[in-house]
Amino acid sequence: MTIASTTEQICFLVLSATLVLGSLGVVLLPNIVYSAFLLGGVFLSVAGLYLLLNASFVAAAQVLVYVGAVNVLILFAIMLVNKKEDLSSIPSLLTRRLLSGAVCLGLFILLIRVAFTTAWPLPGPASIGEEATVRIGEHFFSDYLLPFELASVLLLMAMIGAIVLARRDVFASDVITGEPADQGLIEKARTPLLIERPKQSQTP
């Protein structure tokens, strides 16, 4: 019994408990702001598990991209759309929850069975540990060069697409009065297109 493996086990137990409880909180908590902050905790504990798996570069990327970018983006989206609305109750909600819970439990049992019955080729070659960053760089610039470049194109497309989708319709000059309008600050009061309105009485 070595101290290192004991520490590893304790770290794994703590991180996995944080991961499971945090993800249950993300799904179940009624307040969505708490869910978003718990999601940050889940991402951090996944980064800790990556450190246990000898992948320090991917752990750093996880913290930078998920906690630093995705989680902040989700928090901003919550602040933009956080209108208090009482959700209309729908029938058979409990049935749906129980059925989907049963399906998820079945999937979980199936995955456990796969994990225990498959003959994994263990033990594999020894892990290269801290050389991983160098090896990832070699992969990116030799045999994974095309996906690497395609990923940059994908990020550019996603950035332009997000800007186009989320842009507000602000005219540089007001169409009716002709006065110049401040581009960034004024959002025109516009009627939403797809709201269900009460049916207007038909005029003959």
């Binding site: 990327a61 998920y66 994994w120 263990l122 290269i128």
Partner: peptide, 27 residues
């Protein structure tokens, strides 16, 4: 880490998945 310890192709794929996930979150 456990099966492909020398040519860590899983880590490369994980980085691609992280990239796609970031794009997916933005869009």
């Amino acid at each position: 880490n456990y099966v492909d310890g020398q040519l860590i192709r899983g880590q490369v794929f994980a980085i691609f998945v992280i990239t796609v996930a970031a794009a997916e979150a933005a869009v």
